[in-house]
Write a protein that binds this DNA or RNA. Structure first.
Length: 970
RNA sequence: GGGCGCGUAGCUCAGUUGGUUAGAGCAUCUGGUUUACACCCAGGAGGUCAUAGGUUCGAAUCCUAUCGCGCCCACCA
């Protein structure tokens, strides 16, 4: 074995061995419990980033662990076609500026397929680099044929249930890019614009969008709000009244700002009367706009109209603002749907001949000018700060525009037709679902036919997609870890609106709808007959992603063996940022399509940040490239650094120093192994005399002999057993960070620092056998976290007949060993080391030492070890403290004994005195606190007895210590 | 604006049901080269657990308020 572990000499080779061995594929043995994780498919055009590294590591840990537990572990890999991102990457790659003019749909798709085939090879190779033990024979792609079929089937199913409809929808329209933008393609920019206050009859309303105030509209007030009729008298004697919110009237500075054209230095303002909004409702009036005379009617909406904003009134522009659109929907105001702006970003005729054909911003200024000239404008606040949506591509302001889109209706009631519950049923055998079970035969009619339940069963079975999605978590059928995300989940569901699923791009699943005149056909295949034209749009990427846990297992063929065996899957692990986009929709579609929630546990990890906890971003340039890290430190170091010191859901900080530390751990493990293996060289089966233990490939001479165990050997066995228990329990609780931390602490600070060092002194073949066994156990426990180095050691040492990836998860030995005795030895050795150092003893010098105490048998038995660990030449044990404690030298207490190091001219009495003084003070301070506690009746009465006992014992020990140190005669 | 969360050692973070002297890695200080490992070994120092109240025999942990920070959702005359 090399002196240091060199990851690159092993990793690729090991990965190939694993894959070739078939270990990545789940066992076909029907007696094995299935354990399934669907991978969050990375973008097919992407490259590996820190977020990928995180989920690959976590999921691989789970998969490897379950595989070792003997489960049929299946991790399905795949990639995502990432519609929008991919389309823009490919267009850029092809140097296409205007998709609609420069390339045909077919040609584009062909090019995109070519391109993604190339990038697919890259990203999957990178996933392998991380050591992902996923089953590549089952690889899927969100945009391949089987997944397309699944998409079409569920689309039709939803449509047939009336859960998919076509409707108007406000979209983000980029005039610059001539395209609809997804919400995450919209950037928000802080801007300073002019806020106009405009006459609307006697009312005043405020807006930035002056160009849209050119049509008939209701004027909304708050019926409970107070409005003020205010009289303005100018210095020339001309006076008039206007109506504004009473709040605004009372707030003179704000009033002056909003009504600056009316409220001049020398004008007077007086309150004429105060009215309730309700009193104003119903008024109809005609008034001039910048375009033409229009009709207004006063209406009320107490939810939307906020008396503290603007002038407390609002007119609407139904087709050009989301809020206005919603308001119009709510009040059924279809007659006010005026298209004032075209998709070219220019004003239409209804906006008036003065501005027709002008671009929005130009029209706005023109409209303001006209209104000013006509006296319609009563205020201009030129420094109105607000945020505007901007197209990330063209930089132009995004216009809300109405267009026809496809939606999934999440509120509509329907009767689900879940397939019969047979076969494996719900995971874990908990058969009872919180939601009513569907009838065994599908269809709405069969439901009412059941004689078993009285009343309208059809109604009782009704549900909505929204309810289904909420019930998953509410009914504890899906558990979210960490739990706090359940709150976020419910909050999202409570605010859930219909899901717009159509996208005006080419790269995606085309909507399976065909039109012929007024006819509409929805199906999984194109209809026969002439003249059918397929919908131009494609589906939102998340639509196909929502099917991932079952579309990858053969659905809609529910007889498929994979679907039967592995669905529902076990755990969905992903970043908390896509809880809504992805996780919630999988839950929704999974239940709808299959009758079962697609997984029972959702584990959410946090973001991967830089060493300072800053979000990684391209602009900051603080991104960590996992491939570079792997190159420099090895995959295991990267994996470990992502796990250690992190907790579920919280962000993980990644810096080179931390990764280097993890690399060091790998090297430490390598060197511990190197030492142990050098003492018991690897052997092929039967090579050593006496043959081998068949199963473990352990030479007979290295089998642990129970009958002659020393304290050290017992310690190794007991501690290793404890470790198995703890790591297993941590993994069961998804406490990966804790598990890794405990393994680290054991391997390095206990096993290497104490056991291996003590073993050198003990020089006993049975100790070596114990070390070797413990090492094997540690390699197994470490394997899910750092698979490469553990496998490399396993192979180098020929520690098992097979690959470590296929080894069994360790079970406790059950050999009733105790670590207690040897722990005492460690404590004594540690104390002597500390005393030597603090007293200034030459570290190379071997000294003599005395230990006084009642029960010294254990220490005497381990004298050789203590002498070796603490560099002692002569060690004397005595029952009673002799006068030696009053001689010059260092005295202290540990493990119930008193330790004395004679000075022999090495110890400076002043230094020693200072040290003892410090010890004494600390002990006294602690004792005072403890005694106070023990004298407190409340404590004695209420605290559990073991806590009281512990306090008593500690107090006694401290009293003794204080006595001994004081006796030193300071 | 609505929601969620976080302030613990110089830095980055753990701390599970409230219960010994609050832990780790890195950094730092003092020393060392010993049958694997300088990607090392041994020993130190370093904390008013953001602040102020409260509950309790007992609070980093539970409650309230304040201050500071982050994330998600919404996009508002």
């Amino acid at each position: 074995m090399d002196k240091a572990y060199e990851p690159h000499q092993h990793e690729d080779d090991i990965y190939q061995k694993w894959e070739a061995s078939g270990a990545f594929q789940p066992s076909n043995d029907p007696s094995k419990k299935p354990f399934t994780i669907p991978i969050p498919p990375p973008n097919v055009t992407g490259t590996l980033h820190a977020g990928h590294s995180m989920f690959i590591t976590l999921q691989d840990i789970l998969i490897r662990w379950h595989r070792m537990l003997g489960d049929a572990a299946l991790w399905i890999p795949g990639t995502d076609h990432a519609a929008i991102a991919t389309e823009s990457v490919v267009l850029k790659q092809l140097e296409i500026k205007d998709r609609n003019k420069d390339i045909s749909r077919e040609k584009f798709l062909e090019e995109a397929r070519k391109w993604t085939a190339k990038t697919h090879a890259r990203i999957t190779e990178q996933v392998r680099k991380m050591g992902a033990s996923c089953d590549w024979t089952r690889e899927a792609y969100t945009f391949d044929e089987p997944r397309n079929h699944a998409v079409n089937v569920i689309f039709k199913k939803l449509y047939d249930k009336g859960l998919i409809y076509r409707g108007d929808r406000m979209v983000n329209w980029s005039v610059g890019a001539q395209s609809v933008l997804a919400d995450d393609e919209v950037e928000w920019e802080d801007r300073s614009d002019t806020f106009y206050s405009i006459r609307c009859g006697e009312f005043i309303m405020g807006t930035v969008r002056a160009e849209t105030k050119c049509s008939d509209s209701p004027l909304f007030v708050n019926s409970a709000g107070e409005y003020a009729r205010v009289r303005y008298t100018q210095n020339d004697g001309v006076s008039e009244t206007i109506i504004i919110a009473k709040n605004l009237f009372d707030d003179a500075p704000r009033r002056k700002k909003l009504l600056n054209l009316l409220e001049k230095e020398d004008s007077t303002v007086e309150l004429v009367e105060v009215m309730k909004g309700a009193d104003l409702v119903g008024q109809e009036f005609e008034y001039e706009t910048y375009a033409a005379k229009r009709n207004f009617v006063v209406m009320a909406d107490d939810e939307i109209i906020d008396m503290d904003k603007g002038t407390g009134t609002m007119t609407i522009s139904v087709l050009h603002s989301q809020d206005d659109y919603d308001l119009a929907q709510k009040h059924g105001l279809d007659q006010y749907r005026f298209e004032k702006i075209g998709f070219d970003g220019r004003m239409k005729a209804i906006a008036g001949t003065e501005v027709e054909g002008l671009a929005i911003e130009v029209a706005r200024k023109k409209a303001a000018e006209i209104m000013k000239a006509k006296g319609l404008l009563v205020g201009e606040d030129k420094n109105y700060l607000h945020r505007v949506p901007v197209c990330y591509r063209s930089g132009t302001v995004v216009e809300p525009m109405v267009s026809r889109q496809w939606f999934v209706d999440v509120e509509k009631e329907f009767v689900p037709d879940f397939p019969p519950a047979e076969g494996r049923g719900l995971r874990g055998g908990f058969g009872a679902e919180s939601t009513p079970q569907p009838p065994l035969t599908g269809g709405q009619n069969s439901a009412t036919a059941s004689p078993l339940v009285k009343g309208d069963l059809g109604d009782s079975q009704k549900t909505t997609l929204k309810k289904m999605t909420a019930d998953a978590v509410r009914g504890n059928e899906v558990t979210i870890i960490p739990k706090q995300f359940e709150k976020t989940y419910f909050h999202w569901i409570d605010n859930l609106r219909d899901w717009c699923i159509s996208r005006q791009i080419w790269w995606g699943h085309r909507i399976p709808v065909w039109y012929r005149g007024e006819e509409i056909f929805v199906g999984t295949e194109a209809p026969t007959g002439e003249g059918w034209i397929q919908d131009e749009d494609t589906l939102d990427t998340w639509f196909s992603s929502a099917l991932w846990p079952f579309s990858t297992l053969g659905w809609p063929d529910e007889q498929n063996t994979d679907f039967q065996r592995f669905y529902p899957t076990s755990i969905l692990e992903t970043g908390h940022d896509i809880l809504f986009f992805w996780v919630a929709r999988m839950i929704m579609f999974g239940k709808f399509a299959t009758g079962k929630y697609p997984f029972d546990t959702v584990y959410l990890h946090g973001l991967v940040c830089d060493a300072k906890g800053q979000k990684m971003s391209k602009s900051k340039g603080n991104g960590v490239d996992p491939l570079e890290i792997i190159e420099k430190f090895g995959t295991d170091a990267l994996r470990l650094s992502l796990i250690i010191g992190t907790t579920p859901g919280n962000n993980a900080n990644l810096g080179e120093e931390k990764i280097a530390g993890c690399r060091n751990l790998c090297n430490k493990l390598w060197n511990i192994s190197r030492f142990i293996l050098s003492q018991s060289p690897p052997s092929d089966k039967g090579e050593l005399e006496g043959g081998c233990d068949e199963k473990n490939n352990t030479p007979q001479s290295l089998l642990v002999r129970e009958e002659e165990k020393t304290d050290l050997q017992n310690w190794i066995i007991a501690k290793t057993d404890d470790l198995i228990t703890e790591i297993t329990s941590d993994l069961e609780k998804y406490r990966f960070g804790d598990a890794a931390q405990k393994l680290w602490n054991f391997t390095w600070n206990e096993f290497a620092d104490w056991a291996v060092e003590a073993a050198k002194a003990e020089s006993n073949p049975n100790t070596l056998a114990c070390l070797r066994e413990s090492l094997k156990t540690q390699l197994k426990l470490w394997h899910p976290f750092i698979p490469f180095v553990t496998e490399a050691i396993w192979q180098e040492g020929k520690l098992g007949g097979n690959l470590l990836i296929s080894a069994e998860w360790p079970a406790v030995s059950g050999k009733n060993s105790s670590a207690k005795a040897f722990e005492q030895v460690c404590e004594i050795a540690g104390k002597i080391r500390s005393m030597r150092k603090l007293a200034g003893v030459d570290p190379t010098r071997k000294i003599s030492a005395y230990i006084f105490g009642k029960n010294l048998e254990i220490l005497e038995e381990n004298a050789t070890i203590i002498k070796s660990l603490a560099r002692i030449a002569s060690l004397t044990f005595e029952t009673e403290p002799t006068k030696r404690t009053t001689e010059d030298g260092a005295t202290d207490m540990a493990a119930g004994t008193t330790i004395f190091l004679p000075s022999s001219g090495m110890i400076d009495p002043a230094v020693e005195q200072a040290r003892v003084q410090k010890e004494l003070e600390a002990a006294k301070a602690q004792l005072v606190g403890l005694l106070a506690k023990l004298n407190n009746d409340g404590f004695l009465k209420s605290a559990p007895s073991n806590v009281v006992e512990q306090a008593r014992a500690k107090a006694q020990e401290l009293e003794e210590k204080v006595k001994t140190l004081e006796a030193k005669g300071l």
